[in-house]
Design a protein around this nucleic acid. Sequence first.
DNA 1: AAAAAAACCGACCAAGTGGTCGGTTGACTA
DNA 2: TAGTCAACCGACCACTTGGTCGGTTTTTTT
Lengths: 204, 204
Amino acid sequence: MDKNLKRMATMHRMQTKGLELFYKKGYYNTSIDDILKELDLSKGAFYYHFQSKEDFFISIVQNMVVRKVYVLMIEPIEGKADPFTAIERCFENALATAQHNELDYGFVLGNFITEFNGRNEEISKYLKDIYKVWEVNLVTTLQKGKTDGFIARHVDSEGVASFLIASYIGIRVLMVEGNSRMLGYNYMQQIKQYLKSIAETQLV
Amino acid sequence: MDKNLKRMATMHRMQTKGLELFYKKGYYNTSIDDILKELDLSKGAFYYHFQSKEDFFISIVQNMVVRKVYVLMIEPIEGKADPFTAIERCFENALATAQHNELDYGFVLGNFITEFNGRNEEISKYLKDIYKVWEVNLVTTLQKGKTDGFIARHVDSEGVASFLIASYIGIRVLMVEGNSRMLGYNYMQQIKQYLKSIAETQLV
DNA sequence: AAAAAAACCGACCAAGTGGTCGGTTGACTA
DNA sequence: TAGTCAACCGACCACTTGGTCGGTTTTTTT
């Protein structure tokens, strides 16, 4: 364990910086040297720890993106009593971190899915798996919301789940331009409107 | 004019193939040679017609993407009597072309916005401008929908417009994986549900 | 302190990349 | 028929890329 410490530390530094740059500049537009330069490390160090650029990226996805999506996008909603409030709070928080220029892992996921689509089957698979977990968890929460009397029985949970995720990823694409605060605020209003429309008792 | 014909034809061939490959493989991951190889043309031909790769891409955006987004995503909705039906039909058509593996220009736009965000200011500007036109036109249609008695007066047209576009771009990101038909169908159901919730008379 | 193992260095390589440029082609003009 | 010029060719260039490898430093083990 003690021996692994340095190894782990270096790998983690590389992965953190790697994710940051891959996210900012894109995978294909970021070279290994770009990452190494910022860390004062050499090619040798990199290929001592990772087999290839692709292997490196996959390790980032599986070690950081998976967990973060889970912690930030899934856990805050999972099995909560009132699904509406949970979803609203979760999305609101995610948009807030995005506006502070921190890593928004919901968007990171959408970004990478877009970049690797049709270009790298293996990586795409890992990314889609994360989306699937997100979706399945949302569906479960929505189903529970039905039995708990929050959501109308006729509602299609899967449709709602993918619609919610899609709208979130989409609004983040649009938020890359200037008035992201306004867009984010307006988006939350519409999400609330939409959620209200699938509620058990329509109090409009 | 007669002389310009050949020039135009070659440029158009390059642009068509360029858009196809840039869309499929991404801008940074597609080389000029990739495009030229498929057209049996040389570097000389390319740089005779275009100043640079970037200039080439911008010409594609301004000549093809702008027009297609307008024809396919804006015009079918612009100023239509019943905005709901118009939006639903337009999105339905766009999703259908996407499922036939044809170029879906709504998604092409979202794709490129993602790829160039934070990487190329100039290109990003052109892309965002297209999005703006799309949004503004949607807002106008929605406003008209209010005065025509289709849409409730309290509705925030801008919020609805960006929400609609966001959800569309987002669902297309998710549709890159297998069950795109199901996703597309479910998406349309949710869009209808959402649109109903902003209608003048709530007949739910 | 010596040996062994782990971590890291950086020069090097082949395969691209965007872009240049002197030259060829072939249709049109004088 | 000779000349002109837009359109195109393809060898070439400087530079970057992912990846290799023999060697050095640092840390751990004995």
